[in-house]
Simulated assay, not measured.
Amino acid sequence: MIYLDLLIGFLEVGLFSFGGAYAAIPLIRDVVLAHGWMDDEMISYMIAVSESTPGPIMVNLATYIGSNKGGLLGAVIATTAVVLPAFFIILIILGLAKNLLKNSYAQAILTGLKSCVIGVILATGAYMILGNCGVTSENGIDITAILITCGLAIVYYGMRKVRKNGISPIGLICIAAVVGVAVYGI
């Protein structure tokens, strides 16, 4: 039964997640919570780990959750299910792309989807900042987490002023990891 649940759950994620992984995070969270595979805190940790490891976030999350709930077969099923819809959609779009992109209705739909995706990504970012930076922690407001987040934002935008390309995401992840271990691990 778990294999069927993984297949259907991650097919749903793969089929309805427009705009990439960050736009898919709320959908993944809903599917995982609905099936009771993880609690909200564990999902947040897995999102952070998936962002830090090579590969697409959706694939990393699907592989981990599938492996956690159904072993190797569960990982294969969940990963395949999350990737399969995009694979077929791309094949169909490539076949129709020449004529479709010239159509004014298709352009209007894509413009509308772009606005929607931006809103979903901003809402996900706000949820993660407020929910995981200690603003809504069980012990009240965690000022340290808020200061670390602000400090990382200052480093990111400050480096963009100093250097043309700014700091790489890998560099920012490394800085965040060191600061997190220094502040919370020691």
Rank of each mutant, 00 (worst) to 15 (best):
residue 2 I to M: 08
residue 3 Y to D: 03
residue 11 L to M: 15
residue 12 E to A: 11
residue 14 G to K: 04
residue 14 G to H: 03
residue 15 L to R: 06
residue 16 F to I: 12
residue 18 F to P: 03
residue 22 Y to H: 07
residue 22 Y to V: 07
residue 22 Y to A: 00
residue 24 A to Q: 09
residue 27 L to T: 01
residue 31 V to G: 00
residue 31 V to S: 03
residue 35 H to C: 06
residue 36 G to S: 11
residue 37 W to T: 09
residue 40 D to F: 06
residue 40 D to A: 15
residue 40 D to W: 01
residue 41 E to R: 09
residue 42 M to I: 14
residue 43 I to H: 08
residue 45 Y to T: 15
residue 48 A to L: 12
residue 57 I to T: 12
residue 59 V to H: 04
residue 64 Y to E: 10
residue 64 Y to P: 01
residue 66 G to Y: 07
residue 67 S to H: 05
residue 69 K to E: 15
residue 70 G to V: 07
residue 71 G to Y: 06
residue 72 L to E: 09
residue 72 L to G: 03
residue 72 L to R: 09
residue 77 I to T: 05
residue 79 T to C: 01
residue 83 V to R: 09
residue 84 L to C: 04
residue 85 P to R: 06
residue 87 F to Q: 07
residue 87 F to Y: 14
residue 93 I to W: 03
residue 94 L to D: 13
residue 94 L to C: 05
residue 104 S to K: 14
residue 106 A to F: 10
residue 107 Q to N: 08
residue 107 Q to P: 01
residue 108 A to W: 00
residue 108 A to P: 00
residue 111 T to P: 00
residue 111 T to W: 13
residue 113 L to A: 08
residue 118 I to S: 10
residue 119 G to R: 13
residue 119 G to V: 04
residue 121 I to W: 02
residue 125 G to Q: 13
residue 130 L to T: 14
residue 134 G to E: 01
residue 134 G to T: 08
residue 135 V to D: 01
residue 138 E to C: 05
residue 141 I to Q: 08
residue 142 D to A: 12
residue 144 T to C: 07
residue 144 T to V: 13
residue 146 I to P: 02
residue 147 L to K: 07
residue 149 T to E: 05
residue 151 G to V: 14
residue 152 L to D: 08
residue 153 A to M: 15
residue 163 R to K: 13
residue 165 N to H: 11
residue 165 N to W: 03
residue 165 N to F: 05
residue 165 N to E: 15
residue 166 G to W: 03
residue 168 S to G: 09
residue 171 G to K: 07
residue 173 I to C: 00
residue 177 A to K: 03
residue 182 A to I: 10
residue 184 Y to C: 04
